[in-house]
Design a protein around this nucleic acid. Sequence first.
DNA 1: CAATTAGTTCAAGAACTATTGAACATTGTA
DNA 2: TACAATGTTCAATAGTTCTTGAACTAATTG
Lengths: 123, 123
Amino acid sequence: MSRTPHHPAREQIELPLVLDCLSDPIRLAIVYQLAQQERVSSELRCGDFNGLAGKSNLAYHFAKLRESGLMLTRVVGTNRFMRLRREDLEARFPGLLDAVLCSAAKDADRLQLSVECEVVEAD
Amino acid sequence: MSRTPHHPAREQIELPLVLDCLSDPIRLAIVYQLAQQERVSSELRCGDFNGLAGKSNLAYHFAKLRESGLMLTRVVGTNRFMRLRREDLEARFPGLLDAVLCSAAKDADRLQLSVECEVVEAD
DNA sequence: CAATTAGTTCAAGAACTATTGAACATTGTA
DNA sequence: TACAATGTTCAATAGTTCTTGAACTAATTG
């Protein structure tokens, strides 16, 4: 297992790949949860998403999110900490991430997304 | 063949479906071309997209775009005129369509999109 | 060192997507 | 009425995506 998984450079982030990533309900839920976590300035571990799907299925979706350039994975011990690549996304696709997140928030019920007050607090 | 194809109501337009539609390069090119055509206040016919794919393949993508709520098809004689459902999309997902279109415009080369001056003029 | 924890990778299967060409339907026109 | 033009629908196929469980790796803990 390589220590740090591969991430594309900013300029390698492709619009179709990003949109495809966001079009999957599980991945959209992951991104949405990461976005809420941003507000308390902290990252989330893989395990924080166990409610969304099984472990190996989550690992599959994490890989897609990493490879599309949507999120960054930082390895610390046996944990992987993840956060959105907001600056890179904003530079490549201005306004896109926020438009998707706001649209998702409007449909939180329909999309079965965690509501705002369920943000995981930082340690 | 039914006279007017089915279109979802505004409130039935789903975010994941819309994003999935936009994540396909051919469909993104169609939407992009429709958006450029908006600027001269006119619609496009199916045949105007013949450069993007074969006829039956295009019909497949047109159906997806219609069923996702991204575009509207109007039948006139043997022709089908199409346009973006901009108002409905703006109401459901504010800023999303423009963010995608601007992002696509930035990557027009990479995405092999027609450039702005190739807008088809209205009759 | 053995056991535990955290997460990935692999293989297999089910389901879905895109693409193609042939057949079809509908309208307009000679 | 025949013929051409515009698109759709159907069937087949190739390829992709999602999901699952089992096996695995790597770091931590007793």
